[in-house]
Design a binder for these strands. Sequence first.
DNA 1: TTATATGCAAACGCTTTGCATCACG
DNA 2: CGTGATGCAAAGCGTTTGCATATAA
Lengths: 166, 166
Amino acid sequence: MRPSINTIQTKRIIEALERAGYQATPNRRLVADLVASTNGHFTAADLLERGRREQVKMGRATIFRALDLLTSLRVVERLDLPSGAHAYVVCEPDKHHHHLVCSGCGRSEDVADGELGALVDEIGRRHGYEIQSHRLELFGTCPVCTAASESRSATGDASAEQGGPA
Amino acid sequence: MRPSINTIQTKRIIEALERAGYQATPNRRLVADLVASTNGHFTAADLLERGRREQVKMGRATIFRALDLLTSLRVVERLDLPSGAHAYVVCEPDKHHHHLVCSGCGRSEDVADGELGALVDEIGRRHGYEIQSHRLELFGTCPVCTAASESRSATGDASAEQGGPA
DNA sequence: TTATATGCAAACGCTTTGCATCACG
DNA sequence: CGTGATGCAAAGCGTTTGCATATAA
């Protein structure tokens, strides 16, 4: 997948960098772009490989440093897959939310906190804890993958559903 | 903390092992005991060190293998701390639940799924996902640590007690 | 010119594995 | 005896760091 420079998403990320006083270097722009052109979760290794494939040879360290940066700016968020592996997803910086991850293709969607906040408060009260943070992670199959697996089982086909993460 | 052999918890774990057809070897008994005498989360390294301190010198591998075993028996569960580190907690094998973890002392408590299930269903429906699993992790300060930090701030003492989650 | 950012490779920490040995059934 | 469990050390992975270099402000 060729990164499409200058999406709104990419710009948002770059602006976030500059607003925070960091340089929007070519490498960081590329990372921003790779990240923005992903609709699922991705790992540092994914970015590294995609980056190399595209054009530039970025060092591992640069990726990790960029990812740390973006994480601290809350442009991306780190999440833990059921396997225990670490992945990242892009997300809206400000509003508190959670992630719904498709275990088929890796696509991820932001989920508003909604009523969960109240439930969390209630749990804290019940246990006498002062809750500082909470994290809800949902894993399931997205509509596309569900459809794919249904038609697959109908036809006996057993090929993969879609692009996989990123 | 000296492991107190033969707690109910320890027995439960050992029975779970035997019921599943695994040998309750001395090493595994020790692990069971260490695990049972922990009321918070712990890492593999913790167990290794406590084990060594107590008596036996267990190889790293043995700890990891035992932990894998207990995880597969759902006697312990692996969880991801906000720092990204992996830890384990003991828990009831059968009922679906979540964890409330004290970021001060590491104590952890099981939290019933309760109304969350309905909320999760609702989210899945809204996004067209078939939810397969969900995980809620709560981080906060337990009553003991809250009290401790209050008396501390009252006396102007500023000693550390925790590393603070994300 | 001074602070930042980058690359590289070595260092790290955690976890797994291969293999010979040992214990249990 | 044969299978399962263990220890050890080496290998593997993902991530971080030190340091010299290159680049931006």
